[in-house]
Simulated scan of single mutants.
Amino acid sequence: MSEKELKKLLGGYLNDTCSDQEKVFLDTFFDSYGIESDLGGLSDFDYDLLKKEMMGNIKKKVRGIEGRQKKSGYSLWRPWYGIVASFLVLLGISVGFLLQTPEKIEVKQPLLLTQTSLSGQKTDIVLSDGTKIRLNSGSTLVFPDSFGNMASREVTLIGEAFFDVTPNPSKPFIINSGELVTKVLGTSFNISAYPENNLSMVTVATGEVEVTPKFDAADGVIITPNEQAVFNKDNENMQTRKVAMDRYLNWKNGIIQFEDETLGRVAEVLERWYGVHIAMENKALAECHITATYDNARLSVILKSIVYAKKNMEYTYLSEKEVLLKGSCGD
């Protein structure tokens, strides 16, 4: 084997363009000839990287070669006996080639970032690909600092967020949120998946979204604008329905909308939005039903509105961050 041929063989391995036989030869050579002592010119990083890549493939490649040997009845290794000897002679040249090549192989692990929107806050996030996210109160997003050479753009959501995803047909955007996996190429949609709620909901504003339960990929659905996928954690059931989109997206503009919601559910939302704790004097209060819309209203305005609608109810501040609701549900 000439120096030129050897350089081509090594370069082909690193660029994943050499044949199975060539890969098996290089893998086996590394493993069999104690080559560590001959690579003094390589840094620990370069050697470990080269060794790791080769050894990561050896079992799979050898298995394929052995299978073909059994079928054909002859050995595929015989043509490489002379090459091993040549490789030993030219080892110094091949190492020099690796050190001089202008393309240095580097493995950069993405740094995972965590952004939390505390109670009473809304947080805007722009990812490295330009995707824009508005994180609702009491929610957390985990995402890489760069998607780099990843096959997909993957993040994790706890709580609620609105996504405006930058289109990239070759690199899908994937959101893990509790029991659901949401996959898109480029679209805008809302995910509400607070751990304490028994319903997780994905609502589409534009484009097309695929929503799949983690436990059953076959139960996935595809939804389009003004459609919503609802996953019930209690019975692990997924359903889709047509919805008035604004009702589920208004929160990002500071609008709270309740449509025949129980006061218990209303209290949960207000606690997240305003960073307070709302206690109730009796359990019956939690079953009162509320229908109302509030546009960037102060908490005091909302509380006054509720007790005005429910004539037998009143509220009092126990402290700056604690409210007590008293009375009954009389209209």
Rank of each mutant, 00 (worst) to 15 (best):
S177Y: 02
T156E: 14
F189T: 01
N197Q: 10
T240V: 08
A161K: 03
G220I: 05
A217V: 15
P195I: 00
F162N: 07
L157R: 01
D234F: 11
L135P: 00
D164L: 07
K171Y: 05
V211E: 05
V126M: 15
G178P: 02
P144R: 02
S188A: 12
N176W: 10
P225T: 03
V221H: 08
D129A: 12
A217L: 14
S188N: 08
F189E: 02
V221N: 10
R153D: 00
E160Q: 14
F162E: 04
K233L: 10
L185W: 07
G138Q: 00
E208A: 10
S139Q: 00
N168E: 12
T140Q: 11
T187G: 09
N237T: 15
D234Y: 15
G138V: 00
I125F: 06
N176K: 12
D164R: 13
G130R: 10
E154Y: 09
L185Q: 13
A218V: 13
F215V: 09
V142I: 14
R134L: 10
T182L: 07
T187M: 08
P144C: 06
Q239L: 13
L127Y: 08
L141W: 03
V204Q: 04
E236F: 15
N198Q: 11
V165C: 03
E160A: 10
A229P: 01
G186H: 05
V202H: 03
K171N: 08
P169K: 15
N168R: 12
A193E: 04
E227C: 01
I191L: 05
L135T: 01
F147I: 03
N226R: 13
Q239F: 13
P213T: 12
S200F: 09
R153T: 00
N168W: 09
V181Q: 10
K171P: 06
I223M: 06
I175G: 01
T203I: 04
R153M: 01
K242Y: 13
D216K: 08
T166K: 13
I125S: 04
P195F: 01
L135A: 01
A151H: 15
N168S: 14
Q239R: 15
P144T: 04
F147G: 00
V126W: 07
V204S: 04
V243N: 03
V126F: 12
T240C: 08
G178D: 07
D129Y: 09
G148M: 15
L127Q: 05
E160P: 06
N136G: 05
S137I: 06
Y194P: 05
L185M: 12
F143H: 07
F143C: 02
